[in-house]
Design a protein around this nucleic acid. Structure first.
Lengths: 141, 141
DNA sequence: CTTATCGCTTGCGATTCGCAAGTGTTTATG
DNA sequence: CATAAACACTTGCGAATCGCAAGCGATAAG
């Protein structure tokens, strides 16, 4: 189950980004890792959208090879692995939040307006704090 | 050639967004419409990445049904159609630009640093002006 | 020593993909 | 007016990818 590991389609940065996460699942996995603090395979496997285990395994491999995720054996339980975001993944947060904002503006999600309010007034701070938290939990810097 | 027109996978705004453009081509088409001012099928068909015509036709249909694109017969030439972005598409610009920024930061693209410089100092203005231009060309507002 | 848990891998049928060729409608040309 | 060209798709087809279910190997718990 592999695609798009060939030469880049063009030198456009959007195209480059899409070659990494231009599918229906990769950003769901990154959302769970970055925004929901999930680290283990099992935690990622029971995401709200119901990802298939083979697809999850494939996406994690791809993200690792692309340098967005770092895989480590768990210290306590040797059966488990942790998937930690790298700086490259943390730097995706602004885009992920803009996507969230767009989604919220075009649906009626409970809690949407409140988040939009906070985001519009405090964007820079919100992003900086969020990134700091993620880096801390991931043991970055 | 149709998928994901069923019920939403969850009520997450990111998941909602991915149901619309979570694939390798939809955002390429939107990039060409929004950022490169392309309107006609032929213009969109010869994008840098080489989209297949059936895929392009499918994505345009989907974007129209989802309300991101408005299809109209050309006034001058009745063989031609124009695909204009709606407000829902114009409001995607911040996300598209964040994606661009992320792509530029993680590749070495000529002209990248210059754009990043401008974006970081002038984000709000840049976006506002860009959106104004797009709306004007699309006959919005 | 047996069973349970975790992180995958495999098999399979269905969907989606890229590519090439063809179709219908409208415009330009002789 | 007849013919050819341009435009916007549509169709066919083989290959890749998908979701789903079941299985497998390694580690941990009882």
């Amino acid at each position: 189950m592999n695609r798009a590991e060939g030469p880049p389609r063009s030198d456009c940065p959007i195209s480059f980004a899409l070659e990494i996460f231009g599918d229906r699942w990769t950003l769901i996995v990154l959302r769970d890792i970055l925004l929901r603090g999930r680290k283990r395979y099992k935690e990622l496997a029971d995401c709200d959208e119901g990802i298939a285990t083979n697809v999850l395994a494939d996406r994690l491999k791809r993200l690792e090879r692309r340098g967005l995720v770092r895989k480590e054996r768990s210290a306590e339980d040797a059966r488990q692995f942790t998937y930690q975001p790298t700086e490259m993944a943390v730097s995706l947060l602004p885009m992920l939040l803009e996507m969230t904002v767009w989604g919220l503006r075009n649906t009626d999600t409970p809690g949407g307006p409140a988040f939009l309010q906070r985001f519009e007034t405090d964007r820079e701070t919100l992003i900086a704090e969020w990134q700091r938290d993620i880096r801390a939990k991931a043991g970055l810097k």
